[in-house]
Design a protein around this nucleic acid. Structure first.
Length: 824
RNA sequence: GCCCGAGUGGCGGAAUUGGUAUACGCGUUCGACUUAAAAUCGAAUGGAAUCUUCCAUAUGGGUUCAAGUCCCAUCUCGGGCACCA
């Protein structure tokens, strides 16, 4: 007998799969399969960034989950779409280019080639005719098309916003790249620069994005994170009239605030504005101007992280007062950085008696605190600052109203007075998509000499990324695209509104590129018809294949998974998609850590390279099966080199069973005498159900049990066929080799309940819930409770524990269990 | 601080709807084969004992005939959010 040689059989089957391309989803190179009445399943992983380092074990776990499902459904003769793609834009390729001069285009091509080669060595059942790559002009042409659709509907827009700017590196910095007000690279002090940036108006869909979360078959963790991210708050917007010092009234000048507690308005003893609030400059007086300006400048310098770290309240008085519309009292207006410009109105009414932050501020600056809710006697809430519910006091004609009712009643009253209204506010902000970077999808916009925007006409797409020699951003504050002087100029046809005549104008292109998340916000739909050169996706193909049935990944809980939902809803509204949620089931897999339990990292030198595992002689089948066996897919797990050996032993035993050799001494003795039907059908059921519920580790465990059993009682051909079929999703090469020898197809087996029924069952006898005896009884006996009770009472061990008599007996037929409640 | 999730042998973990706790794998020990080792095959393996009984699912309570599973409190770890009015 040949020994189990993964190297040999894996090469053999990979060559066969390469030649026959058995995993094509469509018929004869088309998008759709022949028989579209057959149920479909569309499976995908979150496509990877193809790094130069190649696959790591985390990728393998992620992709194997998808592959097990793909092969499982394929064996069940469903139409399976299991494509693959590469998310290739991004900073690593650009930094590499700056360092080496090798273009991102070239580096990306090399990396994809390497990835593809490695993926094939893992035996993934990928439809290779559908590979996509976000930096391929044939792909990003349609990313630009998507942008233009959003633009047309006013959901892609430009606005001024503050960005971190390093004056030495001449570049914009992300919030996380600013440490203590200094650039993380050069250490120089950064400044906030107001820049015009592109945004997608995701907030238009805030409500639907929130409410549709309920219907998703996604992990609760992710759903909660998305809910929190969207952060809906129901409350009221209230207007406060302003009176400047020395003047009676400032006319129509009013400050709007947002509050979730309009019921506490009688307790609002001052207003606080964010430092960036545009009204601040109008509120300062000659005495306060200098101090307020200094405070504002200082606040602008601080990063948001710093603002959060330093919770000590700071602030300055503007010198102006507002009128509390409920009490008519004159209340001071302050400026403080604990109020954020980006949320609500950027201004609050402070109710120090019932809000912790306002209380802190009032204490520090000696501002009045006015209680308006009576704290119930049984409340354990803080002494000084009660935020719970209760009855209103000091609130005029609302006294004695319950706060829970008062929110609505007070809002209605404010509305009557014309000073307030109901308002819903979200934490989520619009999605900033401008990136001053070279290696991204160019934004298809041009500007005329006056700076007016013009979309690049759809028939001129793609706006290609120009070739440049130096990828570094320069002191213009624009991406390296600006260095391509010829590329910058573009002729756009302009129609004169009045005359209706058109003329051609030479304009300047936008040099910002799109956030990479834009490219990944529609790629799942591209998979349905990846070669369509007339549309981003074809109507028929998308109708059959999409939405994605199972999507597997380990990252992007909020960003990507929220953006793709947003685009889905937008394109559904435009009539391009016949569904409003892109992903039915989301599997969020855990990470694989190093054997020491720490994160794998090059610097720690604890990285396990999956290709090494294959090459050491274990093979891809062992690697795949081990990663499914390592633990529940959604939990982090530590790599255990010893356990890899255990899985290899298991596959070796499968091989031995099938190809002969020293399979258990028992097989010789009992081979044909003992029926294996029961264990066979039990295993089919268990593995099938386990895969359905994504319990891959227990599916593998039950295959191990089956093999152990077959070693003891001997395997019939039907057992070997069953084993190979059930094993195939996990270890496809070995299973294919077995099925070839056994001359069998790979169609998923079904189980028959009749083989799972036994003639005799084991009756569990408990006394007071503790196991005291196990009785072997005929199945029919389960129908006769009285007889079972007799039998149980006859057991010496039962008698021993029921000396003082029996109170009652509980019989659970389903559990085959009898619990005797003994008297004391 | 707030919101989730988790805590089970020496280790990774199983127990799907409240019903036999510890499946499967690793490790360890013993045995077979071998001159020997590896590989392979077989057996044992939660702890303690008075040897078939007690104690064990982070800790302390509770509900129940019955709790790893449900409820309350506490501790530890992981993740997320974090001045969002």
């Amino acid at each position: 007998m040949d020994r189990y040689n993964p190297q040999k059989i894996e090469q053999k089957w990979q060559k066969i799969w390469e030649e026959t391309q058995p995993f094509s989803a469509g018929a004869d190179g088309k998008d759709l399969p022949k028989d579209q009445n057959t149920p479909k399943v569309f499976l995908a992983e979150m496509f990877p960034y193809p790094s130069g380092a190649g696959l790591h074990v985390g990728h393998v776990r992620n992709f194997t989950i998808v592959d097990v499902l793909a092969r499982f459904y394929r064996q069940q003769e469903m139409n399976v779409l299991r494509p693959f793609g590469y998310d290739t834009f991004g900073l690593p390729a650009e930094n590499y280019a700056i360092k080496t001069g090798i273009s991102p285009q070239e580096a990306t091509a090399t990396n994809i080639k390497n990835f593809r080669k490695q993926l094939k060595r893992l035996g993934f059942a990928i439809d290779w005719s559908r590979e996509i790559n976000t930096s391929d002009p044939e792909y990003y042409r349609w990313t630009q098309w998507c942008f233009l659709q959003l633009y047309k509907k006013g959901l892609a827009y430009r606005k001024e916003s503050y960005q971190w700017w390093c004056p030495v590196d001449q570049t914009v910095l992300a919030n996380e790249q600013v440490e203590n007000g200094h650039c993380w690279r050069c250490g120089s002090e950064v400044e906030k620069k107001k820049m015009k940036q592109w945004f997608f108006k995701i907030t238009d869909y805030a409500d639907e994005l929130l409410s549709d979360i309920d219907q998703l078959d996604w992990p609760d963790k992710i759903k909660t994170m998305q809910r929190n991210w969207i952060g809906r708050s129901d409350g009221a917007e209230i207007e406060f009239e302003i009176i400047s010092e020395g003047e009676e009234s400032a006319g129509d000048f009013k400050i709007k605030v947002f509050t979730t507690r309009p019921d506490t308005i009688f307790g609002a003893t001052f207003l606080v504005l964010a430092p960036e609030h545009p009204a601040v400059s109008k509120l300062v007086t000659d005495e306060t101007r200098e101090k307020v300006d200094a405070y504002r400048t200082d606040a602008l310098k601080k990063s948001e992280i710093e603002r959060q770290e330093n919770k000590e309240k700071t602030g300055v008085f503007t010198g102006s007062y507002a009128i509390n519309p409920a009490t008519g009292e004159k209340i001071p207006i302050w400026v403080s950085d604990y109020v954020l410009m980006g949320y609500g109105e950027g201004a609050i009414m402070a109710v120090p008696a019932h809000d912790e932050r306002d209380f802190e501020f009032a204490s520090k600056f000696d501002l009045p605190v006015k209680q308006v809710i009576e704290k119930p006697d049984n409340s354990t809430d803080g002494e000084q600052c009660y935020h719970g519910e209760g009855k209103l006091v000091n609130s005029g004609h609302f006294d004695d109203t319950d706060t829970s009712d008062a929110r609505e009643v007070v809002t209605a009253w404010l509305e009557e007075q014309g000073v307030g209204k109901q308002k819903v506010t979200y934490k989520m902000r619009d999605w900033l998509i401008s990136r001053q970077r070279y290696w991204g999808c160019p934004i298809p916009i041009a500007y005329d000499k006056d700076g007016n925007e013009y979309p690049i006409p759809e028939d001129q797409l793609p706006v290609l990324i120009p070739e440049v020699e130096d990828y570094k951003p320069d002191n213009s504050g624009r991406s390296a695209l600006a260095k391509a002087k010829d590329w910058l100029k573009v002729d756009i046809e302009v129609k004169d509104e009045k005359t209706g005549k058109t003329h051609t104008e030479t304009m300047t292109r936008e040099t910002d590129t799109l956030d990479g998340y834009a490219c990944s916000s529609w790629y799942l739909w591209r998979y349905a018809s990846p070669h369509d050169n007339q549309h981003a996706w074809s109507e028929d193909a998308i109708k059959y294949w999409a939405p994605t049935d199972v999507y597997v990944g380990a990252d992007h809980a909020v960003a990507h998974l929220l953006y793709i939902r947003f685009w889905c809803k937008f394109f559904a509204d435009q009539g391009y998609l016949p569904f409003r949620e892109p992903i039915k089931t989301l599997l969020y897999n855990g990470y694989i850590n190093a054997p020491d339990g720490k994160k794998m990292s090059k610097s720690k030198g604890n990285v396990i390279d999956p290709l090494d595992i294959i090459d050491e002689g274990y093979g891809a089948d062992t690697l795949r099966t081990y990663e499914m066996f390592i633990g529940p897919y959604d939990l982090d797990a530590a790599w255990d080199p010893k356990s890899v050996g255990g899985v290899y032993r298991f596959l070796n035993r499968c091989w031995t069973l099938c190809f002969g050799g020293s399979a258990g001494t028992g097989s010789k003795k009992q081979a044909e005498s003992i029926p294996t039907l029961a264990i066979r059908h039990k295993t089919i059921k268990k593995v099938t159900e386990d895969i359905h519920r994504h319990s891959f580790n227990t599916a593998v465990a039950s295959l191990m049990e089956y093999v152990n059993e077959l070693y003891k009682i001997g395997a019939k051909t039907e057992d070997l066929i069953t084993l190979a079929k059930l094993l195939k999703p996990f270890a496809p090469h070995l299973a294919s080799e077995m099925l070839e020898k056994l001359e069998s197809d790979d169609i998923w087996p079904t189980w028959d309940e009749k083989y799972l029924k036994k003639d005799t069952i084991e009756l569990i006898v408990q006394v007071n819930g503790k196991l005291r005896a196990k009785l072997s009884v005929p199945v029919e006996a389960l129908e006769d409770q009285a007889k079972l009770e007799e039998l149980a009472k006859g057991e010496p061990n039962v008698q021993k524990f029921t000396k003082n008599g029996i109170k009652k007996i509980i019989f659970v037929k389903k559990a085959k269990l009898l619990n005797i409640v003994a008297a004391k």
